[in-house]
Design a protein around this nucleic acid. Structure first.
Length: 123
DNA sequence: ATGCTGACTATGT
DNA sequence: TACATAGCCAGCA
């Protein structure tokens, strides 16, 4: 099988992002794997970067492996937007601005459900 | 072709 | 936990 064209790769990435359920999040690496592009987490970031503003894709549900919102570096971008969109769907951040992936990570194998409460002691 | 950049990550201190 | 590094590779000048 010849290598996928850039267009196909983007399309696959967008298709995966579109499947992330409300109230759940996925990491760049995770999206890459499900898109059949293991190891290309950076490409996922690039694809989302190229996303037009009015897109209906739930791009805000994609985070880095640390459970944090990745910086765009660009001036003018409000990191608060992504956080706000997530909080609106009940995804909560801890005091350090990170999301508990144990609770909110998307698992495509399981059916959408409400995140379990965290009664687990944290370290 | 070549070199640099980066919405990334795993690993080592 | 927080940085630093190295590997990564598509996009772009």
């Amino acid at each position: 099988m010849p290598p996928a064209s850039a267009e196909d790769r983007y399309r696959k990435i967008y298709a995966v992002v579109a499947r992330i359920p409300r109230g759940r999040v996925a990491t760049y690496g995770q999206v890459a794997v499900y898109a059949g592009l293991p190891g290309r987490a950076r490409l996922v970031g690039t694809a989302l970067r190229n996303l037009p503003d009015g897109s209906s894709l739930p791009w805000h549900r994609v985070l880095n492996a640390q459970g944090q919102i990745s910086s765009r570096g660009g001036i003018g971008y409000e990191e608060g937007l992504q956080r706000h969109l997530l909080e609106q769907e009940s995804v909560s951040f801890d005091a350090r601005g990170r999301i508990d992936l144990e609770r909110f990570a998307w698992d495509p194998e399981t059916r959408p459900r409400r995140p379990r409460k965290t009664h687990r002691a944290r370290k």
